[in-house]
Amino acid sequence: MLQGTNLIKDFRVRLGLFRGNANLRAVDNVSIAIQPGETVALVGESGSGKSTLGRMLLGLIPQTSGALSYRGTDFSQLQGDAQRQFRADVQAVFQDTSASLNPRRRIGDNVESPLIFNRRLSAQQARSESAQLLERVGLDPKTFASRFPHQLSGGQRQRVGLARALASQPKFIVADEPVSALDVSVRAQILKLMQELQAQDQLAYLFITHDLGVARLIAKRVMVMYLGAVVEEGNAADVFARPAHPYTHALTLAAPVPDPARARPARHLMGDIPSPLAPPTGCRFHPRCPYAQAICKTEVPPVREFENGHRSACHFAEQVRAG
C-alpha cells in the first residue's frame, strides 16, 4: 500500500560559531513496505532515525533521495483527488500528547479539523461526528468536547489524538511512541484501544517504539533500526526469539524483566550510542559489539536472509542467530 525504497534523509546541522555546518544522515538507505491492515513495529533507541522515517512516510518531510509511493503512485505525482485521498488515508498519533494538540483550541475543535478539511464536512456534521469519535475512543463528548487539552490527563489526551487520527477515516496510522509517556495501567488501556480500532477499521499501523515488549505485543512484523539504518527485520516472533543481529540481541537482554525470580542476563553491550554526526565506519554497531572482528571496522555488512523474510545486516548473522 505504502512503499519507500532506498530512503535517505540528511539534515544540515549547525555546529556553532566558527565550526560551520555538518551533514547528519538521520535515515540511511532504508526500504519499507506497508501492507493494508498489518502492523509493523519500528524499534530503536534515540538517534536511530525511526521518527524521521515515520515523518517521511507521512509526507511531512521530503526525502533526500529514494522513492516513496502510495498505492503505486509516487508521492511527487500525487495530485488533486489522489493527493487528498492520501492526506486522509495516512494519519498519525504522537508521543507528546500535550504538544500534539493545539493548546488554545478546545478538544472538540481539535477533532473537528480533519472532518472539515480532509473530509469536507459541514461545521454541523463535523460537530456531531466529532462527538461520535470521542465516544468511540472512550471519552464522553458532553464532558470533554468543550475542554482545553491541558485540562485532560495524558491518557485522555492520547485518546483525543486517536479520535483526531480516525476522523480522516485513514487506512494507515503512523504511531510514534504513542504510549511511551504514559503510565503502565494507562498504557495498557491505550494499546487495547488501538487493537480494537484496528480490528474495526482494518487499519495498518507503523508502530514506532523503543519498547520491545510493546513491539512484540502489537506487531506481526518488526524492523530494528540503529543509527539510521535497519539492522534487522522479520517476523516479530522470529526476530525476538532468535535475533540475527547482535544489537537486537542486546536489546532483548537490556530491557528489565518484571520477574525477580529470573536470573539477570549477562550483558556485554558497552558504551553509549555514538553521535549520528560521526557514525562509525564499516558496521556502525562495531564499537559496541561483542562479536566484532577486523572486517566489521572496514566493511559495511551485507544483508543476509533467513526463512520468512528474516533479514539481518551483520557479518556474523548466522553465528548470532545460533546463539
Binding site: 495501567s185 498504557r187 512484540r216 530491557a255 518484571p258
Partner: peptide, 9 residues
C-alpha cells in the same frame, strides 16, 4: 498490565 517481551504473547 505490564507488557514485557515474555508476557507479550
Amino acid at each position: 498490565s505490564t507488557v514485557s517481551l515474555e508476557s507479550a504473547s
